[in-house]
Design a protein around this nucleic acid. Structure first.
Length: 246
DNA sequence: AAGTATGGCAACCGCACCTGA
DNA sequence: TTCAGGTGCGGTTGCCATACT
């Protein structure tokens, strides 16, 4: 037996909200609040709507502190950065942007930012979300040229790996990370030795990574030092300020 | 001017988690 | 401890406006 539906779908209105419905919902909530029960709210308020629909309408559109209109560059940067750290955790990302809803941010990402980011990766010299950086990694931590098996051990020593599919299945790196999805460079945590680095890489290859594969990501500078054999640690991140994906 | 394609956004769906009886 | 109801969340759909042919 499945669980009972939250409302009688045959007797609730669906689709776009009318101004009258909006006004009714606002008036009720301003007077009574949610009462801790969205399911019962529409009946009390005299709305022929599902409680979930009322909640969504209020949270995503009617709340007085909602910010309508276009996103600023700063907001775009924050979204990009947080998405790079935690993926599609829209509610958490929304909590960093006052006045923006998870739905709003999700739509903005799907319709604009994702395409913008893809375009910037496809045309490194063209318009980009990223500030241009020297080879071989751009500011997003993406390799701008092929990573070879010669550079891989160096990355492994530092606890870094390279997700796959950026160069297709012929790339030897694919054999290390068969389940990964992009060419992003990332850190597997604080590897203190070559062995630990290798172990964390192996764990990632097995899919045994924190939170479904969402890993902290520190981008370009440190990797640039590593690949160029720099002995300075000037660019080593402190672990608190990930710069991916710019 | 009409038809079609695309983009943007509001809303819905269904699952997972939380909470209280 | 169990279970049902409520809530939160991410993914997806569908509608409408605009751009393009």
């Amino acid at each position: 037996m499945g669980r009972a539906p939250c409302c009688d779908k045959a007797n609730v209105k669906r689709g776009p909200w009318s101004p009258d419905e909006d006004a009714t919902l606002i008036r009720y909530l301003q007077t009574h609040g949610t009462g801790g029960n969205w399911i019962a709210l529409p009946q009390k308020a005299g709305l022929k709507r599902c409680g979930k629909s009322c909640r969504l309408r209020w949270l995503n559109y009617l709340r007085p502190d909602i910010k309508h209109g276009g996103f600023t560059e700063e907001e775009d940067d924050i979204i990009c950065s947080l998405y790079g750290q935690m993926g599609s955790r829209w509610s958490i990302i929304a909590s960093h942007l006052p006045g923006r809803t998870d739905n709003d941010i999700k739509n903005h990402w799907n319709t604009k930012l994702k395409k913008k980011l893809l375009a910037s990766k496809a045309t490194p010299a063209g318009p980009s979300l990223c500030v241009p950086k020297p080879e071989p990694f751009n500011n997003c931590g993406y390799p701008s040229q092929n990573i070879t098996s010669a550079t891989l051990p160096m990355l492994a020593d530092a606890g870094y790996g390279v997700l796959t599919n950026v160069n297709g299945p012929q790339n030897p790196i694919d054999t290390f990370f068969p389940s990964a999805e992009t060419g992003r460079v990332f850190q597997f945590g604080a590897a203190s030795s070559s062995q630990e680095g290798s172990e964390t890489m192996a764990a990632a290859a097995n899919g045994d990574v924190e939170d479904g594969g969402i890993l902290p990501d520190y981008g370009f500078e440190y990797l640039y030092d590593l690949v160029h054999g720099s002995t300075t640690q000037d660019h080593k991140p402190d672990g608190a300020t990930p710069i991916f994906p710019c």
